[in-house]
């Protein structure tokens, strides 16, 4: 069975990552109502879906890998996490009940908990589905993120 390479994912290149957090801020911004980075963080209390990690010379930006076998999908008790026909892993924040199972099982730490008085749900990279092209890739100034077909 030859699988058609339909899914495009964001691939981090750690050799090029300069830990500038543009990906994080761009992510937060495009997922906000205001589309303004300051308001996104300060008024809408949003958090980035990409995580920049730094340890000395090693740094990388990490977001949902849309795993071929997503453990988060196995573990989701509410049916909020679903895999589409191309293998993209979607998380419906409205449906999510905040059981944190996905947080507990994601091998990449790419499903994050949003724990606020008014809302409790997990959130993760949606590949900027609404936008058509991942904002993090567009924002990266050093070509440390590329948008490519699933490998």
């Amino acid at each position: 069975m030859s699988k058609k390479r339909k899914l495009m994912k964001v691939y981090p290149i750690e050799e090029n990552c300069i830990s500038c957090r543009y990906c994080e801020v761009a992510c937060t911004m495009v997922h906000s109502e205001s589309k303004d980075p300051v308001k996104a963080y300060k008024l809408e209390n949003l958090l980035p879906r990409a995580t920049v990690e730094v340890k000395e010379a090693v740094s990388l930006s990490l977001m949902c890998r849309h795993c071929k076998h997503p453990f988060c999908f196995d573990a989701c008790i509410s049916g909020a996490i679903m895999v589409d026909e191309n293998g993209k892993v979607n998380l419906d924040e409205e449906k999510c009940v905040g059981c944190w199972n996905c947080v507990l099982v994601c091998p990449f730490g790419a499903a994050h908990p949003m724990i606020r008085e008014e809302k409790r749900h997990s959130f993760k990279c949606d590949l900027c589905g609404d936008r058509g092209f991942p904002a993090c890739v567009e924002a990266c100034p050093n070509r440390a993120l590329i948008y490519d077909f699933e490998r």
Partner: peptide, 27 residues
């Protein structure tokens, strides 16, 4: 709390992030 993938061996990141070995058997 900031333990992350940068704390993991480089080969692991190579395998998972570059080669995308995320099928069931890869775990």
């Amino acid at each position: 709390p900031d333990f992350g993938l940068v704390d993991l061996p480089q080969w692991w990141r190579e395998e998972k992030l570059k080669q995308d070995k995320t099928a069931y058997k890869d775990w």
